[in-house]
Computed example of a mutant assay.
Amino acid sequence: MSKQTIATAALALALAAGVSCVRAQDNPAGDAANGQKKAAMCIGCHGIPGYRASFPEIHQVPMISGQGAKYIASALTAYKKGERKHPTMRGIAGSLSDQDIADVAAFYASHQRPTAAAAAPAPSAAVAELLKKGNCASCHGEGLNKPIDASYPKLAGQHADYLYVALKSYKTENNPNVGRGNAIMGGMAKPFTNAELKSLADYIGSLPSDLQVVPNAKFR
């Protein structure tokens, strides 16, 4: 091996190591125990079974216990940056450091439960066509419960009314308080009517799921 080849290989390794270090700093490891201590602002909504929000319309707040840590961190970061427009969530996320976000995400991701193998209900012919059109499983995985990338959410079993609101938000433009700036999901949601999105949300919400609400001890 020539000296030039060795030098090139060494430089490549050094650059790769540098990139790895930057990524590690940008994405700190989360600590679930610390996250439990930092989740005080979360439990008032996400720790009460059946709790409903009234903005931008009445809907159950999403279940986040059992979601992947990388997705929860991604969502909180999007609220913090204003890519997801929601005044309350932006205020909460904006008060969190990157380490806080990682810790809270690890805490909610740690709420795993053994799930019995349950058969998914068969979609109607109309919903089957909508699922095919949206190709939801290509990102959200088998049963819409096994995302192909950890930064994507589990959808199966999520509250249908929340899913409907979330899907509509990807269609919303030029609203300072409502909307989500995800180009991929925007492109997926916009071809559907709101009635079609509701049908999709109702079906997805009926699927077997890892998601749950873990009540905080204060509210039990």
Rank of each mutant, 00 (worst) to 15 (best):
T5Y: 12
A10I: 13
A10G: 15
A12H: 01
A14N: 13
L15I: 13
A17C: 13
C21N: 03
A24N: 06
A24Q: 03
Q25M: 07
N27P: 04
G30N: 07
A32I: 02
A32H: 04
A39V: 04
A40Y: 13
M41T: 09
H46R: 01
P49R: 03
G50S: 07
Y51M: 14
Y51N: 05
P56C: 12
H59P: 15
M63C: 10
S65W: 03
G66E: 14
Q67L: 14
A69N: 05
A73L: 03
A75S: 11
A78N: 11
K81R: 10
G82T: 12
K85F: 10
H86F: 08
R90T: 15
G91R: 06
G91I: 01
S95M: 11
L96W: 02
A102Y: 01
Y108H: 08
A109T: 02
T115N: 11
A116P: 11
A117W: 14
P121I: 00
P121L: 00
P123G: 03
S124K: 04
A125D: 15
A128R: 11
G134Y: 00
A137R: 00
S138M: 13
C139L: 14
E142D: 15
G143R: 01
L144C: 03
K154L: 09
V165K: 10
K168W: 05
K171W: 08
E173I: 14
V178P: 01
A183I: 08
G186S: 07
M188E: 10
A189L: 00
N194Y: 11
L200P: 05
D202H: 00
G205N: 01
F219R: 04
